[in-house]
Design a protein around this nucleic acid. Sequence first.
DNA 1: CAAGAAAGAGAGCACCGCTCTTGCTTTTTG
DNA 2: CAAAAAGCAAGAGCGGTGCTCTCTTTCTTG
Lengths: 265, 265
Amino acid sequence: MSVIKGARERARIEVTAAIKQEASKQLAAEGAARLSLRAVARELGMVSSALYRYFPSRDELLTALIIDAYDAIGAAAEQALAGTDGEPPADRWVAVCRAVGAWAVAHPHEYALIYGSPVPGYTAPDDTVGPASRAAFALITIVRDAHRDGLLQPPPGRPLAAPVRADAARLAAEIAPELPIPTIAAIVAVWAQLFGVISFEVFGQFNRMIDARREFLDQAAAGLALQIGLGAAESPAEDTPEGTIAATPEDATTTIPAPDGVLRS
Amino acid sequence: MSVIKGARERARIEVTAAIKQEASKQLAAEGAARLSLRAVARELGMVSSALYRYFPSRDELLTALIIDAYDAIGAAAEQALAGTDGEPPADRWVAVCRAVGAWAVAHPHEYALIYGSPVPGYTAPDDTVGPASRAAFALITIVRDAHRDGLLQPPPGRPLAAPVRADAARLAAEIAPELPIPTIAAIVAVWAQLFGVISFEVFGQFNRMIDARREFLDQAAAGLALQIGLGAAESPAEDTPEGTIAATPEDATTTIPAPDGVLRS
DNA sequence: CAAGAAAGAGAGCACCGCTCTTGCTTTTTG
DNA sequence: CAAAAAGCAAGAGCGGTGCTCTCTTTCTTG
């Protein structure tokens, strides 16, 4: 099936990739609102109508970029996860949260595309749900591992209301049957909350409030771990040595271009 | 100063209001992306260029709508707060969170305008910061009251990293000097987390996961209260009677129009 | 009342997404 | 192998957008 079929097919693949790449470039530079089919075509030296041979509409192009973005943030999460195999669950959790946050800050427009405001009522095409859950699965893996190793405490807080419990039970059956129901509910809540913090950071809601963005996210992530029951290890003094958490070297390119117009969102 | 100055001035005020109202209507119906100056002008029976006598650009119009939205969600929070005077802090907290969430669900496009994705790097014009903080102040009021009444516990979790502590201390001096620094930091984190949950709900990220939206938000809100140190009252059994929290009658119009195109965001 | 400021109307510019038709090339098929 | 089919680029064009400029009318004010 995956044999090369001929010059035409190969060309199609290449052109499609080029379009996606140029679109991705413009997305990163200017944001989804300013992404223009005509501009992409112009940059590629083709006429705009030719582009419709490859993507039936602008929305379809953006959907492709959405999938890429989900994949990228998922890959960032998985990569961070992979580097933390033996560590205590809370540390692994914070590491993955930090990786996700760093990706978001480094790719604000892509992040906005997937965790910003879509048209409400829009249900994502099924192609997106797979890539979309990669990041979530990375976090779930930590919890499952902790559970396997007997390091998972029950989440704090009042018992679940019945409908929430029902939802969580259904979810548990799908993704992690061995985990306690309250833990599942806590994961979902904490997952949303993590993206609340990241969104506020990326979207500038912390602007005149928090300067120490990285440290703040770490702090919040640690709090979220606690909420799931990924308690600090037995020796809380050793838990998170300041130097490790608060000052990682790879600061990289967190500066954002800061375009002109506000909105058009 | 506020004396009426003449027919012209009065007309200007009225026309400005009419424009804002029509724009608001289109925003609610179609979303910010589809809000068009020309359409607003058309609906008002004027020509599009005339509209520029009142708003110098589309962005300015949207900024006005942003302020309105902040005011509306702030008013919703304050109104919910006002009805909970004698109640235990955790209950008040949940009530305000629920009011904010209900407003967001009822006005998804307006919510997206203020808590969705702006252009990153955009710093809001100073006109917006006042209205923007109304909702936050409502939540802070609960914490201050709890503190005054001796009902505030220190927030759980590890001690603050130094830079976070510095940010929180600066914030504390501005808004609530009597509160402990860790509490301030916890409020900021929890505030962001709350909007994470609400955003996931409004933007459909919970779509195939959580059906019991309202109960889930209550559950999450209760957890957030815990994180601030607004512990459950002394009698945890009486804490949140199922009927009160889980099933409020006013379900109202939570249905979202669900437009066609996905994105254009 | 006349000068000046404010407001509306209209034309026009440079974009946008998208469609349709027209030629040309590659692939498939009789 | 030639003919038919399918894929592709190009161009023109449609209706829409935000925004600017000029011209005329209307109201305010010295």
